[in-house]
């Protein structure tokens, strides 16, 4: 029983990592209707920017906010410079640009900051919460921050005009344009927000897995799994999906002998396929019907 609880908690801790990435994935999906394969590397790069600021002597929260702002502007710029010119190109072109960006961010980070692992500070105290040995304070904090981000996103989409305009731009660009929404800038805003959310996720993940250029490689896959399980157009679903993937992965890896640790990553991939086949909209996603 003890082992069960420990694995569930360790799964939730990992799940918080996946949920953060899944949120960023869903954010961009809301805006452009694609998964951005470079999302993980963008988050990693943002985290390095934060690391460089911290190394330069900035206090943690100042570096944190500055990184979020820089990432937001970076995401915005990326859309304007790279994706606007190819906005009418087929989806495949976009995917190839995503993969190109993935490689570029990865090698740039390696070139600038080298490939050895770097410790990244946590904003939360290092003493265990209530003296327990089951789950670290940072992990609890990470779950909290993920839920706060989720609430903010929900409020943004639900109660602000910009949020509504963004949803309109993604769902039906032509009609949105007719009622005066600047669809192009809404896309750019989506990129900016996704980059900012990714930056927060990256800064919370790095203290756990250590900062290095490849730190997001495996995590992004789990993030995709989380987003798909929960529903690719539902932020709440993405967070739920992230936690589910984290817990399911640990429990199957521990208690089902023939899965073991070797097939843990495959579990995430099987989840993606099963959900896409059985319930493509995910647990909490809305089914999108388009007239053809």
């Amino acid at each position: 029983m003890d082992l069960f609880i420990q694995q569930v908690l360790a799964g939730l801790a990992n799940g918080a990592i996946y949920a953060g990435v899944a949120l960023a994935v869903v954010m961009i999906y809301q805006a452009i209707d694609h998964f951005n394969f470079a999302q993980g590397e963008m988050a990693m790069f943002s985290t390095y920017i934060a690391w460089a600021m911290l190394n330069g002597g900035l206090p943690y929260w100042l570096a944190f906010v500055a990184t979020v702002v820089v990432s937001f502007l970076g995401g915005l710029a990326l859309e304007r410079i790279v994706f606007k010119p190819i906005q009418n190109a087929p989806a495949l072109s976009h995917v190839i640009v995503f993969i190109g960006l993935l490689a570029i961010f990865n090698s740039m980070a390696g070139f600038i900051w080298e490939f050895t692992i770097k410790p990244f500070p946590s904003p939360f105290p290092s003493a265990p919460l209530f003296g327990n040995t089951l789950i670290g304070t940072h992990q609890v904090g990470m779950i909290g921050v993920t839920l706060i981000m989720l609430a903010l996103i929900w409020v943004f989409f639900r109660y602000t005009d910009t949020g509504l305009a963004m949803r309109a731009a993604a769902a039906n660009p032509d009609s949105a344009r007719l009622v005066g929404v600047r669809v192009g800038w809404m896309l750019a805003l989506g990129w900016g927000l996704a980059a900012a959310i990714g930056a927060v996720a990256g800064m919370l993940i790095a203290p756990v897995v250590f900062l290095e250029p490849n730190m997001m490689a495996g995590i992004l896959l789990y993030g995709f799994a989380g987003a798909i399980v929960g529903g690719a157009n539902s932020p709440a679903g993405a967070v739920l999906g992230g936690f589910l993937v984290g817990v399911i992965e640990n429990l199957l890896g521990t208690f089902v002998p023939w899965i073991g640790n070797e097939l843990k990553l495959s579990v995430a991939l099987v989840l993606i396929i099963v959900v896409l086949v059985v319930r493509p909209s995910g647990l909490m996603g809305q089914r999108v019907v388009s007239r053809v």
């Binding site: 082992l3 799964g11 990992n14 990592i17 789990y222 640790n261």
Partner: peptide, 20 residues
Amino acid sequence: AQSYEVTDPTVDSQVVNLKA
């Protein structure tokens, strides 16, 4: 004996099993 893949984000789950 617990294994991990280089793609795993962490080995926390494995270490928990070893302790158990």
